[in-house]
Design a binder for these strands. Sequence first.
DNA 1: CGTAGGACCTGTAGCAGATACAGGTTCAAG
DNA 2: CTTGAACCTGTATCTGCTACAGGTCCTACG
Lengths: 133, 133
Amino acid sequence: MRRGELAERSGCHIETVRFYEKRGLLPTPPRTVGGHRDYAPEHLRRLTFIRRARELGFTLREVRGLLDLVDGGDWTCAEVRKMTLEHLASVRRKIAALQKLGAILDDMAAECDGGAVPECPIIDALMERTPAG
Amino acid sequence: MRRGELAERSGCHIETVRFYEKRGLLPTPPRTVGGHRDYAPEHLRRLTFIRRARELGFTLREVRGLLDLVDGGDWTCAEVRKMTLEHLASVRRKIAALQKLGAILDDMAAECDGGAVPECPIIDALMERTPAG
DNA sequence: CGTAGGACCTGTAGCAGATACAGGTTCAAG
DNA sequence: CTTGAACCTGTATCTGCTACAGGTCCTACG
């Protein structure tokens, strides 16, 4: 399988494949006589893993951690679960932060009457007050 | 006021001050005889504005947009409110995406019994199934 | 068999949004 | 007059890609 097909089947951008290879997440495949990369199904499996983990918001560092566990061979379900829960916690922190932020924006927009004059509580808030702490 | 003091009083990192100057968000201040930047209170006001807007998740492009409105002088409250509401919408989209993601992670972690064996529904999900679509 | 044009190859630059560092100058206190 | 903190400059680094330029290979069509 060549790079284009691998990219398409995994759902990754073609350049991303090369990027992951450079980062050591995807092993360097053998080459054809002409120098083209020649991927095996195992590469597709691994790249799909990476893409899905990325979609779930794992950083590349975290993905690498998961892959290292799997590659090591002596990993346990508990370890994977731990990483997942840590990531879940960070997702929830992000949600909380965004919700707080949304509430502030909502308040600011509500205070603003949308008038045509160059006086605005939003600008005032950013210039003068302390909205987020 | 020098760069260090400006940074401290605005709550920005000292290097960030120079970064914003380079990006044209903060005007170049006059210099002392020795070549040090010499900031006025107006710079502090502006930098504080930038920092607060950034804390509220506005991108630098959006911050620039807000500053352009203010700098232009002919902005209206309605324009600022529009930008705020657009940003609020994007914040809410992010929250929704993260919540969906959190639910998936939660499910995955729940399926996982945390055992000491190298068999894990999470890894399986990433390798084989289609969790997020 | 020749050629057209796609798919690939390489290295490098760019995006956001900072942060960090090296190697040199200036300033202020003692 | 010395010390050392704070400043100056340019450039490199980080994450996670994406996009290009300029060249090579592969395959299908005639």
